[in-house]
């Protein structure tokens, strides 16, 4: 019963949503509107569940002193402080929450992303070796795009940006499109398997 009811709901809702997409009728539009409202409500509840989950997990980790448990103190502190400030003073410009956002969140986020540039430079230097023909091809393509995508490339040769565009528009796009088609077909297959109850991973169960 625990499995049958969710499977039946999933099957009915899945089929109804597929059918309504292809039928331009008022009833179909009303069904769509209702489904969209439900999704928004369910998502709001999921947020509450998420907060509950991270709170309990963090408390558990601190209690049992699991690996890196002290980071959980900061998680909980952040959660409590921002929630209290946000609920008490609001979230608009000029509020204490915005001060925290502008002075902690923004610089921390920018720093994390900036550090990436350093690691990328170091990793590129160590890993980009022309060991094989394929690696050499990759290296040449990378050089063309790296130069073609900055004004320095134009200063070296006016044809470099065109060459970089060709790399992105022809070989890159062919590969991207193949991946996109593959992903789309995979998504359709997986969705059908979920709707028909063949794939039950989402229930925490096994495949039939």
């Amino acid at each position: 019963m625990q499995q049958r009811i969710p499977l039946a709901i999933c099957f009915i809702v899945g089929i109804v949503m597929i059918v309504q997409f292809f039928i331009p009728h008022r009833l179909s539009e009303q069904t769509f509107d209702l489904a969209v409202k439900w999704i928004r409500i369910i998502t709001a509840f999921a947020l509450v569940l998420g907060v509950r989950s991270i709170t309990f997990r963090s408390i558990e980790k601190i209690k049992r002193q699991k690996k890196d448990w002290f980071y959980s103190i900061f998680t909980l502190l952040g959660l409590v402080i921002t929630s209290v400030i946000g609920l008490g003073w609001g979230v608009k410009a000029g509020t204490p929450l915005r001060t925290i956002y502008n002075n902690i969140m923004v610089p921390l986020g920018a720093t994390m992303f900036s550090i990436l540039a350093y690691y990328m430079a170091s990793a590129a230097y160590r890993a980009f070796r022309a060991r094989t023909r394929e690696a050499t091809l990759l290296l040449i393509a990378a050089f063309i795009v790296m130069l073609g995508k900055v004004p320095l490339g134009t200063a070296i040769s006016g044809k470099l940006p065109d060459l970089a565009d060709w790399v992105l528009n022809v070989p890159n796009m062919a590969a991207k499109r193949a991946i996109l088609f593959g992903v789309a077909l995979g998504m359709i297959a997986t969705s059908l398997k979920i709707i028909l109850g063949i794939e039950r991973g989402w229930l925490g169960g096994r495949r039939r």
Binding site: A121, A124, Y125, F128, F143, M146, L147, K149, V150, L152
Partner: peptide, 9 residues
Amino acid sequence: AHLAIMILI
């Protein structure tokens, strides 16, 4: 920065 990375490579 792009030029520096390329020279390093």
